[in-house]
Design a protein around this nucleic acid. Structure first.
Length: 617
RNA sequence: GCCCUCGUAGCUCAAUGGACAGAGCAGCAGCCUUCUAAGCUGUUGGUUGGGAGUUCGAUUCUCUCCGGGGGCGCCA
């Protein structure tokens, strides 16, 4: 999968705005090599990695190595030969419109742009496209992203937040890159954990639930932890305690049995308590600006999933061991003809005929393919379930679904606390809402020290954008498969490589624009650009390419890193280069347009990360 | 035992097989009567876990060893 992704990445990785010049130079290089019988390797372009000037570069190491293999180099070392070729090519190209100069250096051919022309092109491109700057061409493929799927009857914690934020950023990236995008959520709303909450509620807390949506969600987690404590076998139990615990256990089992049999009272209790959880989930998704298109509930696919097992047995994919007291299984390695154990054997139906997680995922995949016609199905689920998904995808393949190869488990590291793994059962969790509230408190206390003039009614809203932004960014600025030890002080830091730093760049840009009394009008960049201006413009020009890369590699981190680099370039520019104080009117206009373009690009990048871009802070 | 994953500066993390491995935090030294200091500038800090291989070139690919985390027939 990874290899496929890399292969689809274009080699023209420099800015998309200079394709014509690049093509022209490429043609001249090819022509020269053909004429001189040089075995030219594929040309790969990259931005020149030095700040202060702007251009693109290619190297001739591979070409020199090819020559050496053909015995043509007279044993000249490859780097030296590469440099020689670069120099020869350079002498052959001559002058190109828009290019200021070309140099051969350390085996590379460096092509530098005329700064003023380049600056104008980039800035006008950004301003002309606005919120659409960086959007990829529309594609015909449909991508479904499945995320935001906590179990009901618990509360939403910071691990769920990572899942949701990762999925949402990915959906935004894929959508902006041009794909039809369907956002799907698959909450687990049944199972023993659910029954446990219902049991203790019915037994000890009926009618005592708090009123608020969040309060009620968190309260359910609390009574769940209490229930597991009551049901847990303790050391040195007295006979009375053992009897008590076993009685509780029997009650819970009985409730599960009734639920399964469709007992109307138990079902009603289930519907009501389930809705409490879903109310909280929907409220949190609203806070995170996440809009799910399709809801699949585990309870919806439970019954239909059992039916598919018969088909698997008939087709000789699954083996039915129920007659011998066993479950229904698929010996995946054996079916694939593997000698070493890799996918192992998967249980697809319990001995008693009830369905499992895997059963339901198979049924759900079928629905995704057949009803939603997805071309690519991405499952955002933590890395602990990677075997489960490998098994599911292989069974789909054995079953004959060609779409199986388009399923992709976006595995990510899970979130732990400094004191260890989070555990709903033990009640040891960092709840999203609590962290969220703390974030806002911290922002408000920072704001209190500053003298920024913000109306009171705006203050809370902006504090939310900043506090939540900091939290979201801390979850997205780590690569997918890396675990996160959640430290609230690090997550809610507002200095350095954080969302507030990026948001602050947006605010500063806005502040300049707000104070300028002149209308924003086109102006040529016909002056000596500072190195800060060139760096800022280069960052902006890379945005479309970063969108493409982040979407194709399924890595919001790429965008998170880019947003920081862009903001960093803006802050340096802001500090070093005067805009409003500039005397020359043309120069001032050009810089104002640059600021407007920077503000737009920062806003676009933040939007893809599901982070708000406030105008003041 | 088998499978997956991670190991880069004191800490937290980056780096399409390419130019001197980069940031933030922490530390040190500076910059606010000048477009918002949630900022800027400078600086200290590395045998990229060890070894071998492929390559003109390896943090990146392959193998092996060491160390951390996760997973492995009726939890989700």
């Amino acid at each position: 999968m990874k290899a496929d992704i890399i292969r689809t990445l274009t080699h023209r990785i420099t800015t998309l705005m200079f394709l014509i010049e690049q093509q022209l130079i490429e043609d001249k290089i090819k022509e020269y090599c053909r004429a001189n019988d040089i075995a030219l390797a594929e040309l790969k372009w990259q931005p020149i990695p030095f700040s202060g000037e702007w251009g693109f570069a290619t190297s001739f190491f591979q070409t020199a190595a090819n020559e050496a293999k053909l015995g043509k180099g007279n044993k000249v070392p490859v780097p030296q030969k590469a440099q020689e070729i670069a120099e020869q090519v350079r002498g052959q190209i001559g002058s190109v419109t828009g290019i200021s100069h070309i140099e051969a250096m350390k085996g590379y051919l460096n092509v530098y742009f005329k700064a003023s022309e380049y600056a104008q092109r980039v800035v006008e491109e950004v301003l002309a496209n606005g919120a659409d700057f960086g959007r990829g061409e529309a594609r015909t493929e449909t991508v479904m992203v499945e995320y935001a799927q906590p179990n009901t009857h618990h509360s939403f914690h910071i691990g769920h937040a990572r899942n949701t934020v990762l999925g949402e950023a990915l959906a935004r990236l894929v959508e902006f890159a041009g794909f039809n995008t369907i956002r799907a959520s698959y909450p687990g709303d049944l199972g023993l954990g659910v029954i446990t909450v219902m049991w203790i509620y019915e037994k000890l807390y009926k009618g005592q639930e708090p009123a608020g949506v969040h309060e009620r969600g968190q309260w359910m987690l609390k009574i769940y932890a209490e229930a597991t404590a009551l049901l847990e076998k303790k050391q040195n139990e007295t006979p009375e305690q053992t009897a008590q615990r076993e009685a509780y256990e029997a009650e819970r089992r009985e409730m599960y049995r009734k639920w399964d049999a469709g007992d109307e009272n138990v079902r009603e209790l289930w519907r009501v308590t389930r809705e409490w959880s879903l109310d909280e989930l929907r409220e949190i998704l609203r806070m995170l600006d996440v809009k799910i298109d399709v809801w699949f509930y585990e309870s919806d696919v439970d019954e239909p999933s059992k039916a598919i097992i018969n088909e698997l047995i008939e087709r000789n994919i699954a083996e039915d061991e129920r007659a011998q007291g066993g479950p229904v299984i698929v010996k995946i390695d054996e079916k694939l003809g593997l000698t070493k154990e890799k996918y192992r054997t998967a249980v697809v139906l319990r001995n008693d005929g009830t369905s499992l997680y895997l059963t339901k995922d198979l049924a759900l995949a079928k629905v995704k393919f057949e009803k939603f016609h997805v071309d690519r199905s991405i499952y955002v689920v933590d890395s602990r379930q990677s075997l489960h998904f490998q098994q599911a995808f292989k069974i789909l393949e054995l079953w004959g679904f060609k779409q199986a190869e388009k399923c992709y488990h976006l595995s990510y590291g899970y979130v732990t606390l400094p004191e260890g793994a989070m555990s709903s059962r033990k009640g040891r969790v960092a709840l999203f809402k609590e962290v969220y509230d703390e974030a806002i408190r911290r922002v408000l206390s920072v704001e209190a020290e500053k003298s920024v003039d913000i109306p009171d009614e705006e203050r809370e809203k902006i504090a939310t954008q900043i506090g939540l932004g900091a939290l979201v960014y801390s979850l997205l600025s780590v690569d997918n498969n890396k675990d996160i030890v959640f430290d609230i002080n690090e997550a809610l830091s507002f200095d350095g490589r954080t969302a507030p730093y990026i948001q602050n760049a947006h605010v500063r840009a806005n502040s300049i624009l707000k104070k300028s009394s002149f209308r924003l009008q086109p102006a040529p960049f016909e002056y000596e650009l500072t190195k800060q201006e060139i760096e800022l413009i280069e960052q902006m020009s890379q945005f479309p390419q970063k969108v493409k890369q982040a979407a194709e590699e399924y890595r919001p981190l790429v965008m998170a890193t880019f947003a920081y680099d862009l903001a960093n370039a803006f802050h340096s520019f802001y500090h070093a280069v005067p805009v409003l104080q500039t005397e020359d009117e043309n120069l001032r206009n050009a810089r104002l347009r640059l600021v407007a373009a920077a503000k737009q690009t920062i806003a676009n990048a933040l939007r893809l990360l599901d982070i708000q871009a406030p105008d003041v802070m």
